[in-house]
Amino acid sequence: QITKEQLGLMKVIVDAYNTHQIPQDVAKKLLQEQYSEEENFLLLTEMATSQVQVLVEFTKNIPGFLSLDHEDQIALLKGSAVEAMFLRSAQVFSRKMPNGHTEVLEERIRKSGISEEFMTPMFNFYKSIGELHMVQEEQALLTAITILTPDRAYVKDQKAVERLQEPMLDLLRKLCALQHPQEPQYFARLLGRLTELRTLNHYHAEMLTSWRMN
């Protein structure tokens, strides 16, 4: 059973998740027609920068985060920025978009100089996230859990991070049991997505390098 305290925690996380979104004007640019490859590339870079800023604003609201060691805060954010970005953009692809928008987005990403080798794992991830039909609370909590990953590089006090992540994992487990009673494996499947996310980190780093070269 979810305790009153956990309900409070969930509300804080979901409110922060909803409050801090990519600004409408930036997001709208993604849907405008006819961009050249260079413009697509610059647009995606602008989106990535905006997503990182949104991520930091969201993370500041995670109870206890700002009381962590300052450099550990940086290490956690740096270590999770790419994963949180893919997790967030996956929801854009899985939400019911007005007809044609998803195709325009996909087309834009395919025509931005990113090679097929990185595209496939990314769209596979979007598909596997879409199949889960996550509710907003699950998306917000999973993002917070991704950020509070204790074993990120350069994190000094891993125990302190664990103490923040644990209640989130417990809450997500209970939420999954409530939301998906007929799917006892649902929580495990969600955590499985986090493993898939980590592989995207590797692809993203290689993608940046190849972008720089062309």
């Binding site: 590339f41 870079t45 920068t49 990182v52 930091v56 500041k60 940086i74 954010l77 740096k78 940046l208």
Partner: peptide, 21 residues
């Protein structure tokens, strides 16, 4: 493009809360 160094700058600046620059 936002290089890795850029990523840390964006994070530090956002953490300090002065996004307007």
């Amino acid at each position: 493009p936002a290089s890795n160094l850029g990523l840390e700058d964006i994070i530090r600046k956002a953490l300090m809360g002065n996004l307007e620059e």
